[in-house]
């Protein structure tokens, strides 16, 4: 039987969400079905460079923003 993993609470785009412990930014995007090449990520007001998505771990209480380009004037 698979052991139930612990989760942590984070705020993602203004919504409080549960996320599995030991999740990288890349894993977080993959679980959201988002293409990492088409978004930018901010963690606690700091940019997470795309090259560091795989090694940057999300931590309890993090404030994450995931943004993309949309139409604008």
């Amino acid at each position: 039987m698979q052991q139930k993993r612990d989760t942590m609470k984070i705020t993602m785009n203004g919504e409080v969400r549960d996320l599995e412990n030991e999740t990288s930014v890349l894993q977080m995007l993959t679980s959201l079905e988002l293409n990492p090449a088409k978004v930018a990520v901010e963690r606690n007001l700091e940019i997470v460079p795309r090259s560091l998505f795989a090694e940057t771990m999300v931590k309890e209480g993090d404030r994450i923003e995931i943004v993309r380009f949309i139409g604008g004037g």
Binding site: G14, E33, V39, V67, F69, I70, G71, G72
Partner: peptide, 18 residues
């Protein structure tokens, strides 16, 4: 010109400008 906005977390397959 383009704008930068939060992704829609409830619709990961929304059309993307890019």
């Amino acid at each position: 010109t383009v704008a930068m906005r939060r992704v829609n977390l409830s619709d990961p397959n929304e059309p993307m400008l890019v």
